[in-house]
Design a protein around this nucleic acid. Sequence first.
DNA 1: CATGAATGAGTGTTCATTCAT
DNA 2: GATGAATGAACACTCATTCAT
Lengths: 209, 209, 209, 209
Amino acid sequence: MPRVSPAYLSRRRRQIPHAAIACFAREGFHRATMQDVIREARLSAGAIYRYFASKEAIIEAITAERHERELAAIAAARAADGGAAALRTLAREFFAPLLRADERRSRRVGVQIWAEALRNPRVLRIVRRGVDGPRAMLAALVGDAQARHEVPPRVDPDAAARAMIALFQGFVLQQAWDPRADVESYLAAIEIALAAISIRQRPPRRRAR
Amino acid sequence: MPRVSPAYLSRRRRQIPHAAIACFAREGFHRATMQDVIREARLSAGAIYRYFASKEAIIEAITAERHERELAAIAAARAADGGAAALRTLAREFFAPLLRADERRSRRVGVQIWAEALRNPRVLRIVRRGVDGPRAMLAALVGDAQARHEVPPRVDPDAAARAMIALFQGFVLQQAWDPRADVESYLAAIEIALAAISIRQRPPRRRAR
Amino acid sequence: MPRVSPAYLSRRRRQIPHAAIACFAREGFHRATMQDVIREARLSAGAIYRYFASKEAIIEAITAERHERELAAIAAARAADGGAAALRTLAREFFAPLLRADERRSRRVGVQIWAEALRNPRVLRIVRRGVDGPRAMLAALVGDAQARHEVPPRVDPDAAARAMIALFQGFVLQQAWDPRADVESYLAAIEIALAAISIRQRPPRRRAR
Amino acid sequence: MPRVSPAYLSRRRRQIPHAAIACFAREGFHRATMQDVIREARLSAGAIYRYFASKEAIIEAITAERHERELAAIAAARAADGGAAALRTLAREFFAPLLRADERRSRRVGVQIWAEALRNPRVLRIVRRGVDGPRAMLAALVGDAQARHEVPPRVDPDAAARAMIALFQGFVLQQAWDPRADVESYLAAIEIALAAISIRQRPPRRRAR
DNA sequence: CATGAATGAGTGTTCATTCAT
DNA sequence: GATGAATGAACACTCATTCAT
């Protein structure tokens, strides 16, 4: 079956992480066997190793792919809106997909990757790259917002960026444990808080007093 | 007619999770073997099974113990302060220990337990109990704070409680990946945000005068 | 089944190489599976790994043990006889066991180890130690024999030692391929050659008379 | 109507053992994969199987080719010189190439084939043919030499032939393990021994006394 | 009671060979 | 004819747990 098109190969390659996510979400990364993934991907044992060198390499690919998409989303939001508006856009962009079952499934795997990063230096590097980049961008956005008096000036932008990421990570975690965790009200609370903080920042009014 | 005193037994029983935390933090829950734990606890293979029925049972004990302490801390804070003051107290009580290496090590195991909960129903139950109780208490505190106009009234108390927990969980995660994550500035940012929100809530009171 | 006697353990440990030799002689080192060895040793998969860390470790143990015995035999012969007499003794001591089937079986494994040494640095080191020591001793014996005019003086003792070892190794090889290779006539030929060389060295003494 | 010339095909066919020798010398017969050989020969997986039915078939071809050349060399020496002179010629013809790196590499593969013969009946047959033919010829040469009183009459010619082959095989082995094994001094020692044996054989003169 | 040797099912991965394209 | 993707049986080794001593 050689001489296949590059398109065929790349489709094949992409279907493996997809199948793996299904297995890992269902069984957990350590409990899921390569046989499970192989079966799910409708491949043979040998075939899967043409595309990924190891079970870990599949995890790494899943991780890297997710982080790339996230970074792109943040960069786009910064380019489009900037400041607190971009933060609101991003909040919606990150939380809205959690309403979909497939995204929740994928995030369940993400939680396992978070733990895996603690023991696997390669995964750790990917996870850190995937968090450090967005954090720097968010910090820059917070800086912008501070310049516009949308965020209290004394807040450390990096700490604020960490907090925003934490608000997302923590919710992902809680939703993974309990699907009833409500995205809407959580997002609403965050937006109210953001608004409260932003409104508070009206130096013109203060100066006007 | 026990050959050993019950006190000896219960000390022994407590030592095991302690040794296990060291191993799990170092190697990861799945990579660490029972042999590692047995060696760390200076026990024999047979002996450890007198205290815990399985590797999972040790994880469950570690999880349960942690959650008991957390719940107690929250209950105490509520009883002592109440309202936004209690929230500030709790923030400090939860974050301050992260300055200690042993707490960070213990939290690394916690991260793994979060992932483990996704696959292990018994662990899930413990983790959920450990999160649901505190969340309800925090929600009650938020309710109190709203009554005192310390928190915007439109915020869903439960969502706010989730957000507070998320702020902690997310930081634990980020610190586990990168020990340089700074507790002080993170806590400061949260406090500034809390203050900003609270201050914002004064106008009604003023108008009420 | 713990708390067993050290004697029991060392018996256990010795029976594994013994079983492995049977398997490796029958199937070849690479074809024989650990399951074969395990079955032959009447052990379980796990048990064998308590005694040897890997399949290679078993090979290494077999190799080392053989070389120890050989070195001891050469040292003993040198101490007892010295000179050409020791060489004759050693020839008989090394060739005579080849009349026994179990020794031939063991030597078949030896041939495989010779090849294995080419790819496995650990085995190479053991094989070289096992050849270099004896070679040095044989060279010393040849030097003694030259001092006694039993061997032509111009011969390089080290080369002569290599030749003696080669005469043995080559025969082992040929007998492994063809069990009809006759030990007696081969040994007789070597002894005639040794005698011819030794007698040739007498003329000086005769002339001295 | 072949698309490619037979000459092209036979060149191709000869290239494969050449590439295989490089791989087997480097990695060992069992460690080297067909992929390695395929890459070294700059062929495709499918193509190589047009020339050789299996990995073993390549080994067999390598073995057979080597033995043909050896047999031809011995036959030529017998025709040219005969007696002890032919033995000396052959010694030089077999040992001299060992000064070249490529020959040593090829002999490393030879050592592995010796081991492989113990488990692979087809390889065994080739190896035995490759040793039995030369041995018979060498035995004949020894017989000639005995007739000329160049070798002690009581020596079994077949055993002497085995010994000569052993002297070569053993050296190949020792040089494979330790490239510092010196060809010159080894060959010199053999020649001194041969000379000592030959000179000793002057019964006519003794009888003349 | 404590010990630790033993168990054995189960794991990720390899690789000679085939055959659809 | 040539290609190289696919196959899948086979492998060495691990480790939570047990239970004879």
